[in-house]
């Protein structure tokens, strides 16, 4: 993959590069050549995180998650699996929640990103954060930022009428029922098992917002 400064990679380009990397990884000789070559060219990327603009130059292998945690020191976003299997890294990108471990930072040039730090602070909690405290919707706290980012986005999804696997009636307005919330939150694992309390926290916020 050749990159020059200022080049904005298309998603297709990144995907092609990704496939090529897998291929060389399977071939030790080619991999050795790749590894002993010069360090990978750094790529520029601009991100707007929690309303603040950042111009970064990154190793193109850097995930959005590691960019947030290691380069911007926004460690509220957690790494639980790095495989899109646990949801601890959930952030809101351009209004939609994603697993930030599953996307490279360079895919997000000029994107608007909201992390847990952008929702509220200990002294000024977002209503969802306050509800999680009140309902004890967490224990160890490690999945919590992802749960909260997801929960905020879920209520927006329901408001926007986006259906889920358990939405039976698409003709009437979507409602934040317990079943809908639990289905939509199921990408966020909480091994401490605070689910029952999380559902109550989200329900309270949904009720207040309705």
């Amino acid at each position: 993959m050749e990159c020059t400064d200022g080049l904005h990679l298309s998603r297709r380009g990144v995907l092609a590069g990704g496939v090529a990397s897998v291929a060389v990884a399977a071939a030790p000789a080619a991999e050795a050549r790749l590894a002993s070559a010069a360090p990978p060219a750094m790529m520029p990327v601009s991100l707007e995180v929690n309303g603040r603009h950042h111009d970064l130059r990154l190793d193109p292998r850097t995930t959005l998650l590691d960019t947030l945690r290691d380069h911007l020191q926004l460690t509220g976003t957690k790494k639980g699996c790095d495989h899109g299997q646990c949801g601890a890294c959930t952030v809101i990108v351009n209004g939609h929640r994603i697993n930030s471990c599953l996307s490279l930072a360079v895919q997000h040039d000029r994107d608007r990103i909201t992390t847990i730090e952008g929702l509220g602070t200990p002294d000024r909690l977002h209503p969802m954060q306050a509800a999680f405290v009140r309902h004890d919707g967490f224990q160890c706290g490690y999945c919590t930022p992802g749960q909260i980012c997801s929960a905020v986005a879920v209520l927006d999804e329901i408001k926007a009428g986006i259906p889920s696997h358990v939405s039976h009636d698409l003709a009437t307005p979507m409602r934040p029922t317990n079943t809908e919330l639990r289905e939509r939150m199921s990408g966020n694992i909480c091994r401490c098992g605070a689910y029952s309390n999380i559902a109550e926290a989200i329900t309270e916020v949904a009720g207040a917002a309705a």
Binding site: G76, Q129, G141
Partner: peptide, 11 residues
């Protein structure tokens, strides 16, 4: 709680 829900508890 406030530290954990804001992502400011340092792991």
């Amino acid at each position: 709680g406030p530290l954990k829900v804001t992502g400011t508890a340092p792991y």
